[in-house]
Amino acid sequence: MRRAFLNRVDRMIREEEDTVFFTVDIGMWTIRDILSVYPERAMNVGIYEDGMFGIAAGLAAGGMVPTIFGIQPYLIERTLEQIKLDFAYQRLGVNVVGTGAAVDYPKYGYSHYCAEDAGILKMIPEAELITPGTAKEFLRLYDQAYRDGRPSFFRVSDHPNKNHDIEVEFGKASIVQKGAKATVIAVSVLLDDVLEACEEEDVTVLYYTTLAPFDRDTLREVCGNGKMLVCEPHFSGVLDYDILQAMEGRNVQIRHVGFPREIFRNYGSYEDKLRHYHVNQEKIREELQQLLE
């Protein structure tokens, strides 16, 4: 997904004269050509996310389309006031692409983990949060959103879905399986596990790659009986507000698979973490059975 993005950046800088790209000192090898040929629009700008976000806001106010690439916790948590004031509240279109989703840097510890990102961004009105499950999905969503004049945050994962590539649309949930007994919401890179776990089940699977704005209409339309299992690759429960708004006036029963809201003080591998925090197929099956009982 990372490489697909950087190749897209290469093309964007070459072909679109009003675009600017800032990297926070990562990914330079892939885009080394544009860094040297277009130094005024493609730059390894330095390690100062707060100021850089303000500068990007100024570029957007001056008619440019900036895209920033960095590591998720520094892009989202260090810069919260810039996201709020400089981007969202002034309605300026800046794209932020973050690597290091949730626990994608498993040995770097909680300084590099960022399971908080979705919850934080969902609290900023008009900020867009886009979490593709594959490289192809990333490209589709980027192309649909990067010039929409809003702050758009893309989360790039190192552990994409391998078995499914969906023709996703920005701002829309995709119905990837139809059933009657419950609705399973699969977010981003959890689609493979959800679909395998639900293969034999009479349930609807809704796939979300845009978390903000959240497609409430599709959920309301397909979730007849209010029974839901929400599978999120970030802190659990982040989507509950939208789900309850979508289902207003109906009884709902929600179960969750996702990272628990606690401090991750462990290291190990990515797989170790999914196992420890029960963000896996086994847990999806277990929760689904309890929901269907």
Binding site: G54, G58, A61
Partner: peptide, 15 residues
């Protein structure tokens, strides 16, 4: 906030 935004505007004008 203002100075970073101003720097971005100045950069946009240069580009």
């Amino acid at each position: 906030h203002g100075l970073p935004i101003a720097a971005g505007l100045a950069m946009a004008a240069k580009i």
